[in-house]
Design a binder for these strands. Sequence first.
DNA 1: TCTGGGGTCCTAGGACCC
DNA 2: TCTGGGGTCCTAGGACCC
Length: 413
Amino acid sequence: MDAFFAAVEVLVDPSLAGKPVIVGGAGPRGVVASCSYEARSYGVHSAMPSVRARRLCPEAVFVPGRYDLYQEHSRRLHAVLTSFTPLVEGISLDEAFLDVTGGRRLWGEGPAIAAAIRARVLAETGLACSVGVAPSKFLAKLASEAAKPRAGPPGSGPTAGLGVKVVAPGEELAFLHPLPVGALWGVGPATRRRLDRFGIKTVGDLAAMPLATVTGALGEAQGRHLHALAWARDGRAVEPDRAAKSVGHEETYATDHHSLAPLRDEVLRLSDAVANRLRESGVAGRTITLKVRFASFETITRSRTVPRPVDAGPAVARVAMELLEAVDPSPGVRLLGVSVSNLGPRPGEQLRLGEGDREGGEREPAVARAVDEVRRRFGDKAVGPATLLRGDGLAVKRRGDQQWGPETGTGRS
DNA sequence: TCTGGGGTCCTAGGACCC
DNA sequence: TCTGGGGTCCTAGGACCC
């Protein structure tokens, strides 16, 4: 989507149209989350401190983020996309990969599908988007960047982009190699600095470098990955319905805290908010992480893994509070965060055995569907034949296992 | 200029197990 | 007395993305 949050704000308040709109925190520690092309024409961009954005563009209209609103429009967008193919992988509220390989008979080739998607998204959400069409995910992503509108001279609106950019098979390297290395997904400031020492400026420079030199500079995994991308090799599939791996909340305070007392209240609030979202998603987690950012911007995390998954505010808070007690706040704490990971099914919602689900018997269809759903959301390892769960949440080992859990005195299987 | 909030993935070391 | 090699799980930090 083009300037998504800002575009939604303009959509619900048309008086903002044509103005420099900045979505983000207006306070002393706020940053720009999104901004209209009019704001960009002054050099404002995402992640820029709001103080600086205001200096660059004093007449900008600042709007605090309304994430529920963006989520609602994101759902509408998603509905349009899934009407073209079920293979939609959302990667944020405003961006998704679609595998349209199977839809060509119905919709035509990639470029035609892309044009149809743009028209339908505009018609049904009132918002503009840019589409990249390519044989792989990361090329499609780069192509969509190339299709976007551009900011014009200060004070002006955007100059129109292509809307749809196609990188056809055979054209990959011609498109890719002139781009700056930083355009590659996974090359941020740190990696760019390292590559800069080798004189690498463009993707083509990186491709021309021997693989061994790249892995020497960036490490085995990242080196191989980026070198492959530089040659347009990207075999990753579009994966719909990826399950979340963590849920967290964090907050930066307008002024630093130097004692634990107020931070304890914050931990309670954050833990509660996180637990609410866990329950909304029907998941629970075993690892609780506390994040602390000091006045110096030094950031630490402290985590603990508990034996049973938790999804209740007090349970999350109990662990987070213990972690907090070991922190010395005297240098000044500017941010606190609580997150829960190691997610799995919610306790109490574990599978019950149906009547037919005895050894040698048929599995009830409902159980089978539930098993499939758990596998889909939590991966194959989440469901094994060896461990079942009783209604009281205690693990029951099956006959034939190497050992019996201490709580399975009855030997029920 | 002074750095948000939501996430994902990777690395490295240590404990522990067989 | 000092020592392998395979593996899992946990913790902490860092890079990166939108």
